[in-house]
Design a protein around this nucleic acid. Structure first.
Length: 333
DNA sequence: ATTCCACCGGAATAGCGGGATA
DNA sequence: TATCCCGCTATTCCGGTGGAAT
């Protein structure tokens, strides 16, 4: 039933981006100067998850490379790699630099190596989840390099509200490009595309795709994953085509997989905190600390818990409401 | 209006793991 | 082998903030 599994994953880079023409054009216009020895404008792509931000960033870079094969580029997920060292390490790895040790190497050495790599060449850096960056100098560095286009990706437009004024001004000429949630009809077109290249003919009906599209909440990642899961389940059960029951089961499964990925990134102590908040569905900090100290074998200090909680908020697993003494934590949703 | 308290998060620091060097 | 260096995490200390109580 499945023709090409990769096409049915959200990270697959399609050879055309449906319903994102103006966005693509805007990014290309901002970056094109690097091909003519000029200074590009930096861009910030912002919008909810599953709206094509990361995919579009890579897509535009691909097109630039087709135009000029000397274009070098790197991409980092700043959620997974938030420190200055890790960002440069990832960038260099992506550029084929394998001879770096993870420990013992000073960050400045990585920065220097990176500068050499991109010197006097057109280059692009993609910082995905840019709001998770822990060291502002990264942004400062990136804005400084000549002939280097910077694509930042975040959920919110106001990523740079509480960062240093000097850094903000060096990024001030950036273009903010909004990626809105997909309409159901647009998601349907995306799914049709994936069906064409990913599945054998006549295995899923358009009405079934429409059902997935309407339930995905404008999130293309959820939609595509749902289609894949439905196909996998149908295949597993030896069917020649996807049945409605497969579609029904696949959608919540896709949502759940999305969430459990985040949960896996928590350490034991963070997990304890998460479970307590889940139990209580709304809890004040004092009580949360106390309950945690009882449950954990080797409780961490309060300040550390605050760091954990902030991190978990960034992961969008929990959220806090109110300020000062009125603060309460709860699960997101 | 003033005081009090819970809460937040920045800055400095120690300890750890692990490569590099001599 | 002993020592140095590096990034990272957890910890200590503490000033600032805003809601609640007086």
């Amino acid at each position: 039933m499945i023709e090409d599994e990769r096409v049915l994953t959200a990270s697959f880079l399609p050879n055309r981006m449906v319903h994102r023409d103006s966005e693509r054009q805007e990014i290309a216009n901002a970056l094109n100067p690097i091909l003519e020895d000029g200074q590009p404008r930096n861009v910030l792509l912002y919008g909810p998850p599953g709206t094509g931000k990361s995919t579009m960033a890579e897509y535009v870079v691909e097109k630039l490379k087709e135009h000029d094969s000397s274009v070098t580029w790197g991409s980092v997920n700043c959620w997974k790699y938030p420190s200055r060292f890790k960002v440069y390490y990832q960038l260099l790895q992506g550029m084929g630099e394998r001879m770096i040790h993870r420990t013992g190497t000073p960050t400045d050495e990585l920065v220097e190596k990176f500068e050499q790599k991109i010197r006097s060449r057109p280059s692009v850096v993609i910082l995905d989840e840019a709001d998770q960056i822990e060291d502002e100098r990264i942004l400062y560095d990136m804005a400084r390099y000549t002939r280097t286009g910077l694509i930042m990706i975040a959920n919110q437009e106001n990523v740079f509200y509480n960062i240093d004024e000097r850094i903000r001004s060096s990024l001030s000429s950036r273009r903010n490009i909004r990626f809105r949630a997909y309409e159901t009809g647009e998601l349907l077109d995306i799914l049709k595309d994936r069906r064409k290249w990913g599945l054998k003919p006549d295995t899923v009906e358009t009405s079934q795709l429409r059902k997935i599209a309407s339930r995905a909440n404008g999130d293309a990642r959820i939609a595509i994953n749902s289609l894949r899961i439905a196909a996998e389940q149908a295949e597993e059960q030896g069917h020649e085509e996807i049945l409605d029951q497969h579609v029904e089961a696949a959608i919540p499964e896709a949502v759940e997989q999305d969430q459990s990925e985040s949960l896996e990134k928590l350490n034991d102590d963070q997990r304890v905190l998460y479970d307590i908040i889940k139990e209580e569905d709304e809890i004040k900090p004092r009580e949360l600390y106390d309950r945690y100290s009882e449950k954990a074998e080797e409780p961490k200090v309060e300040r550390t818990l605050r760091n954990y909680l902030r991190k978990m908020e960034n992961y969008r697993l929990i959220e806090s409401t109110g300020k000062g003494t009125g603060t309460k934590y709860q699960l997101v949703d």
